[in-house]
Design a protein around this nucleic acid. Structure first.
Lengths: 193, 193
DNA sequence: AGCTGGATATATCGAGTCGATACATCGTGA
DNA sequence: TCACGATGTATCGACTCGATATATCCAGCT
């Protein structure tokens, strides 16, 4: 599934501009999908060229004019066929966990800082999520509640893991650093070659 | 962090060919990172050009010759600096959850099939993971145990959520379909193309 | 009055990634 | 013998990401 399909899906819930599509994705798909303008605008252009969406200019007072897109009948058809036809992918790409995998190459302060950053990020994300859910949950479909609930559950589990293993990891890494193995900070300081 | 850094990291654990790097990533980073040949081979070529890794041909009997790379001193230095300097990203891209978000556009059988596919995938992944962990856990560093444990915990939480909400979602979607709203399967059957 | 920062809005470019594919060698089992 | 799968290197097009440019308007500060 590419951003084209995502746009069709969002537009199936109502007319939106490119900017507003990105806002919707950020709010509703926060935990499991993202899309930048560099993907959205070309996708919209291609969809319009193919007749799956129709755009029209909308003047606004107090802010720039926008181009609002609506999904067409063929667009709805394409969306249905794409959702049925593609196998469901689910990919995690975590540079954070790669960093943790190589924790023994990091200075202890850096390790602690990274851990704290992620804990804060997950906490904030969860709070924003809960807030968004509370404001909208009575208008959501079963599928929307399911997807949002999944994200919330998984992030909560991740946060819990981080909080419960932070100290242990920090201790173990410090101990093994102290036991003779050189740490990256040292190597760096000595690296003068 | 790009695949170049990933390669340096893997090579810091020992010499490997491009093919073997991919194997290592699949085994050890299964839950949180992946890299294809289309990224690994160019990364290796660029790293060698810059002097961060050194490659040599190794003949093998009974299988094709391979080109094995080892990390150099400047490579180790670059790895340390990169791991310290980059902010930790963590991105999930789940077409599966987008699909669930739009569950009301899916025929019930398709929805059930997608759910079952994901449950099976997570179950298998978890089993392979447990197996890999059991075979290697006494040689792992604290950071490696932490990263692997994170992956295991999060996948287990996801699997649990899926198993506990599968029936509910299926019921709710079926009910709302029956209550008059047309479903994608109908639209598709009527579309005649 | 003037200036800055931030939200709204569209658009593009280069760098990097992904998935598919091509090619080649060798062992194993039908 | 012959297809298949594992090992191995390599590349190409399509797509995505992140940064950046441009522009308008409001709110708040000096």
């Amino acid at each position: 599934m590419d951003v084209k399909t995502l746009c069709l899906g969002v537009l199936s819930m109502g007319e939106r501009s490119g900017y507003e599509i990105k806002k919707t994705v950020e709010e509703s798909f926060h935990h499991f999908f993202r899309a930048g303008y560099g993907s959205i605008y070309p996708a919209l252009a291609e969809l319009e060229r193919a007749g799956h969406v129709a755009g029209r200019e909308v003047a606004q007072e107090g802010r720039p004019a926008k181009r609002v897109y609506g999904i067409t009948a063929t667009g709805r058809d394409l969306l249905g066929r794409t959702l049925v036809g593609e196998e469901p992918r689910h990919v995690v790409r975590s540079e954070f966990l790669v960093l943790m995998y190589f924790a023994h190459l990091l200075p202890a302060e850096r390790l602690a800082a990274v851990l704290d950053t992620m804990i804060a990020r997950f906490r904030d994300g969860l709070a924003a999520d809960l807030d968004h859910y509370a404001r909208t949950h009575d208008q959501l479909t079963a599928g929307q509640r399911f997807a949002l609930g999944y994200g919330r559950t998984v992030v909560a589990a991740a946060l819990d893991y981080l909080e419960r293993h932070r100290e242990t990891l920090l201790d173990e890494v410090t101990v093994s650093d102290a036991s003779g193995r050189p740490q990256a900070g040292d190597a760096l300081a000595a690296a003068g070659d």
